[in-house]
């Protein structure tokens, strides 16, 4: 497998999420606290933005396509248009935000990449492989090379953190020794070393999302698709998740993130692909969430 052969990325461990400060009495104190939270969030955001600014220069797209769409159209039964003649290229190592209102085609785009559905017409390639000619039996292989992080985490509810992450390696028939070595390592990396035997429902939303990122990344896939990874999380937790994803991206993994988080997109100033009614409405190298012209 190509991804497992790749060298382990130099991702620094993230400290475990801080527990919320205890409840306090007194309005003044509450206010002071929310003030404090706002400040911390602003700091963290600018830190993230600072990191992205810093990385902009060394960031050099390889011009090798990770994802390539040529006139891709998806029409669902009942003439519902999911994607309408979309042509775009996402290079290896890029970080791309996918934005647009609900029903604009973001989910269709992601489902096409995972070959959950097939395009009605057009050419769609992932990692240089055409998905049109990809056999059904090859779909699992495709998915092992694409990490997925979802808004609702999609963890296996009856399995521990360890088992959830290990499952992604087990489906490939990896050897037990390798699994036993790799899984704790990646769980430590996302800052959940002390939660390794917990079940998903015993974790907070942010922690669950870290587990799902660990699972998505344990193969070191060249492509990580995130479908509103912070959609269910509070802003502070979101930043932690974004930092984690950012580190993964810096290690060379292409990241495609569908999101509604306007602030995040505006701050990070990365490539933004906007969809509207299935059409490619905007593709900015360093875009914001909304069009610069104030749409």
């Amino acid at each position: 497998m190509a991804p497992s052969a790749a060298p382990a990325p130099s991702v620094a461990p993230v400290p475990a999420a801080q527990p919320d400060p205890p409840m306090t009495r007194g309005e003044a104190q509450l206010e002071r606290e929310s003030e404090e939270r706002r400040r911390r969030r602003a700091e963290a955001l600018s830190e993230l933005a600072g990191e992205t600014n810093e990385i902009r220069r060394p960031f050099a797209p390889s011009n090798e396509a990770m994802i390539l769409l040529e006139n891709v159209t998806k029409v669902y039964p009942g003439a519902v248009v999911g994607l309408d003649d979309v042509t775009l290229q996402i290079d290896k190592g890029e970080w791309v935000f996918l934005v647009g209102p609900s029903g604009s085609g973001k989910s269709t785009f992601i489902k096409l990449l995972l070959k959950e559905i097939d395009a009605t017409s057009g050419n769609l390639q992932v990692g240089g492989r055409s998905l049109r000619t990809l056999k059904r039996s090859q779909v699992p292989k495709l998915r092992r090379n694409i990490g997925c992080v979802f808004q609702d985490f999609k963890l296996l509810p009856t399995r521990s953190v360890y088992e959830n992450v290990a499952y992604a390696l087990e489906v490939q028939g990896q050897r037990r020794e390798l699994i036993e070595r790799k899984v704790p390592e990646i769980i430590g990396l996302v800052g959940l070393a002390d939660k390794i035997d917990k079940l998903p429902h015993e974790l907070s939303g942010g922690q669950q999302q870290r587990v799902s990122i660990a699972r998505a990344f344990v193969n070191h896939p060249p492509l990580l698709i995130c479908d509103e990874p912070t959609g269910n999380l509070d802003p502070e937790t979101s930043i932690g998740i974004m930092q984690l994803l950012y580190r993964i991206n810096r290690a060379g993994t292409t990241i495609l993130m569908a999101t509604h988080d306007r602030e995040m997109v505006d701050k990070m100033r990365r490539r933004v692909i906007a969809l509207e009614a299935g059409r490619l409405a905007r593709d900015d190298r360093r875009g914001g969430y909304a069009d610069e012209t104030g749409l």
């Binding site: 699992p140 495709l142 489906v171």
Partner: peptide
């Protein structure tokens, strides 16, 4: 659960 397994690349 089955859906998740398939998404993670299980045959």
């Amino acid at each position: 659960e089955v859906e998740v397994m398939k998404l993670v690349g299980a045959t």
